[in-house]
Design a protein around this nucleic acid. Structure first.
Length: 435
RNA sequence: GGCGGGUUGCCCGAGCGGCCAAUGGGAGGGGACUGUAAAUCCCCCGGCUCUGCCUUCGAAGGUUCAAAUCCUUCACCCGCCA
């Protein structure tokens, strides 16, 4: 993805900007870091493949990397093909279940593709790079590892790390995960040697690992570098950001539909919306301040929410998809009658929803069976409960009776019907011709 | 290696032979009020072909008319001792 050159701000402002956005938790010697940022530096963030897709929690740090690139620095996104096989103990109270090598390799590829979207690889001055730590870890023998790298680590210090000591007090730690900090340190050292990388960024829980890397660089290369951690983003109710009942909000459209993705941002609590804009948006301070003003004047208009949802959805899924998803939301949540929508508009709005289909001429199943078929509820019992609790709608009209069955007339253009569960959970039913 | 304690539904955590699909809290869901927000109040929360049936209380066996509850073995966790 190309970044507009017009967006480039002088690097001297970068740290101030990050502070303003609430994106700095801790740094090593900020004065020195500020000074070094006057010249372009190389910096990296690592992403261990722990799932088939990145999620919006990963996006927080990833966008910090992007901000550094826009400011003229050289970003390196590291995919943990090696570290993902070992498992980071940080912030966990028990050992991870090891994934197979083939699974991790597959996830590495998916991560690469996704990461590429948020960085600029074409710029002549500071193109981004994506690296995989398996490239320098796999060829290394156990003896080399122990003699050349292990020798520089003091077990005493390793034990003192939060990520380890918490485990010693709790459920214990395997030698595998205990070694994780050594691998991550090796990464920093390698990138320092190969690409002159002098800054590593990560979540707060990465502090120990990053600092261990700095120690290693100092010992082996007598070099210096910096660490910067980004705070864990919390919602105002204290819960982790980016989780829904169904799990994480993924960047992969197959795992979290663009419609759900947009809705996640749109339904952000009022208290959090400005905070999230600061973290995720690339708009200027003035623009965000203006949105804050509008929001405070008339929260019901949800101007800030819409701006947030739109910007992030465009960033992740592109403008075209965002337009479609917005149009769908407008049509489905609008005040107008569903029956007034033309067929094309309705069809494209419904395309964004979870759906099921029935064959023309077949008996139409009950509302309960239809809803269950769309996957919006986990079981038919749950669907029945919704009807009983009067949260069931067909085409935005409340229905009752567990055995309620839509009729052919309920289908717009003889094709579409809309199921709704509660206030905002929509699903579509389409009648299709016999195959 | 020895002794003791534990393993319960999405999570925490009661139950300790029948009244148990299993108390309570959290999370989650529905309703009312709103703005596809929050707070608040009410309700729900294993599944199904639903006045009944089926599957759950670490795993596998066993005792019993009847087990999450008793017995045996196994696995994992946590203490104390060596």
């Amino acid at each position: 993805m190309k970044t507009e050159q017009a967006d480039v701000v002088p690097s001297a402002d970068l740290l101030d900007d990050l502070h303003w956005r609430g994106l700095i938790s801790q740094t090593t010697d900020e004065t020195a870091l500020r000074k070094s940022l006057k010249e372009p530096i190389s910096l990296y963030i690592g992403f261990d493949p722990t799932a088939p897709s990145l999620h919006i929690g990963n996006l927080v740090v990833l966008l910090v990397l992007r901000r550094f690139q826009i400011a003229g620095h050289n970003p390196i996104a590291l995919v943990g093909g090696a570290t993902g096989l070992v498992g980071d103990p940080s912030g966990r109270n028990e050992d991870r279940i090891l994934n197979s090598e083939s699974t991790v390799a597959e996830w590495v590829n998916k991560y690469r593709m996704q990461l590429a979207r948020y960085l600029d690889f074409d710029g002549a001055i500071n193109p981004a790079r994506i690296v995989n730590n398996l490239d320098w870890t796999a060829p290394m023998s156990a003896i080399e590892f122990l003699r050349d790298i292990g020798k520089h680590f003091s077990v005493n210090q390793m034990l003192a790390k939060d990520s380890v000591s918490m485990r010693l007090e709790g459920g214990g730690i395997s030698y595998t995960e205990f070694s994780y900090q050594v691998l991550q340190s090796l990464d920093f050292l390698e990138l320092y040697r190969r690409l002159g990388c002098t800054l590593q960024i990560g979540g707060t829980e990465q502090w120990g690992n990053i600092v261990a890397g700095l120690d290693l660089i100092r010992r082996v290369e007598s070099g210096g570098g910096h660490a910067l951690t980004v705070p864990l983003l919390l919602k105002s109710d204290g819960t982790k950001f980016g989780k829904t009942a169904g799990g994480s909000v993924w960047l992969d459209a197959e795992m979290t539909s663009p419609y759900s993705f947009y809705q996640y941002w749109l339904t952000t609590e009022d208290k959090d919306v400005i905070k999230f804009l600061k973290v995720f948006s690339f708009q200027s301070h003035e623009q965000i301040n203006e949105l804050e003003k509008l929001h405070n004047e008339n929260p019901g208009a949800r101007t800030a929410h819409r701006a947030l949802a739109r910007e992030i959805t465009i960033l992740v899924h592109g403008e075209e998809i965002c337009d479609r998803v917005e149009a769908a939301a407008r049509a489905l949540f609008g005040q107008g009658e569903l029956g007034e929508l033309d067929e094309v508009t309705l069809a494209s709005a419904l395309a964004e929803l979870p759906k099921t289909h029935i064959v023309k001429g077949d008996e139409i199943p009950t509302w309960v069976d239809l809803l269950h078929a769309t996957g919006v509820v986990e079981s038919k019992s749950a669907a029945r409960r919704i009807v009983k609790e009067s949260g069931a709608y067909l085409n935005n009209a409340k229905i009752s009776g567990e055995d309620f069955r839509p009729s052919v007339n309920d289908f717009f253009f003889g094709r579409f019907a809309i199921l709704r569960k509660g206030k905002r959970d929509l699903a579509a039913v389409e009648i299709i011709k016999k195959p």
